[in-house]
């Protein structure tokens, strides 16, 4: 087993906290790991990445070769495109769709998402919305680790242990927020994939999973939604335009 991950985002978004959680889980599991990161000038709001590799065998390079990246985890959608030429043909992308706009020529969102959704092995989550629901907008990085956690070789508890460790210094409240962010990301990511695997388009799956009450999301509800909406755009529109909150177990009401 060898897993090569590129963590992508913007300086200040907490890429190194994501790395901390995965590094420590890898250490606990007795894996070899390497994790190259960016310090210095780029941390001032520039594009930053971390190459993270773990394996039960030997690892050599700190940098992931092109074509050997198994997974891109992005806290920001534009940043995926900076590294997707490293992705192996069957590699995965787990990305936030919450843009971090600190440049004048940030691309228009609809086109960006359409381009990202051309990759088949994709998980898109609205980290901004989920982090807010968890109680702090700054917890977007933990949302995305949660969403990516299904693609890692660790149990939820093995990862959460280090979410706790990372934030312990800041008090119980912050720990609780970040645990919640992780869980919301994990549930939402799994639900999104459930929709896509059931045949829903990536963009529709994103819209639906963004509409539903995040606290209520579970992967088991995905097939009921696929069945209820049955590829009918009008039915999806009815959900999206529904006034007020929709719970994940309410699919039948829109069928």
């Amino acid at each position: 087993m060898e897993k090569n991950i590129i963590l992508a985002g913007v300086g200040g978004q907490g890429i190194l906290s994501i790395a901390y959680v995965i590094d420590n889980a890898a250490l606990d599991a007795g894996f070899n790991f390497r994790q190259a990161e960016v310090h210095g000038m780029a941390q001032r709001g520039g594009a930053v990445q971390s190459n993270l590799r773990y394996s039960d065998g030997e690892l050599h390079s700190d940098i992931i070769p092109q074509g050997l990246c198994d997974l891109i985890v992005a806290v920001e959608p534009l940043e995926v495109m900076r590294y997707w030429h490293y992705l192996r043909p069957d590699g995965w992308v787990v990305t936030s769709v919450t843009p971090y706009v600190n440049i004048p020529d940030y691309p228009e969102m609809e086109g960006l998402l359409a381009e990202l959704s051309t990759l088949p092995n994709m998980v898109m989550v609205d980290t901004g919305r989920l982090a807010k629901a968890a109680g702090n907008l700054r917890s977007q990085n933990m949302v995305i680790v949660g969403a990516a956690s299904n693609r890692l070789n660790f149990t939820e508890d093995q990862l959460l242990k280090h979410v706790d460790g990372l934030f312990a210094r800041k008090g119980e409240k912050i720990v609780a927020v970040n645990r919640r962010a992780f869980s919301l990301g994990r549930q939402t990511g799994a639900f999104y994939r459930g929709l896509v695997d059931g045949g829903m388009s990536a963009l529709n799956a994103l819209k639906l999973s963004t509409k539903l009450n995040p606290e209520s999301l579970a992967v088991k509800h995905a097939p009921t939604w696929v069945e209820a909406l049955d590829g009918d755009e009008a039915k999806l529109t009815a959900v999206l335009e529904h006034d007020g909150e929709v719970n994940a177990d309410a699919a039948s009401a829109f069928g």
Binding site: G67, L78, M81, W84, H85, L87, R88, G91, L119, N121
Partner: peptide, 11 residues
């Protein structure tokens, strides 16, 4: 090595 995507266009 083969990749899932090219480094395409201006980012």
């Amino acid at each position: 090595l083969e990749t899932a995507h090219d480094l395409s266009g201006e980012i």
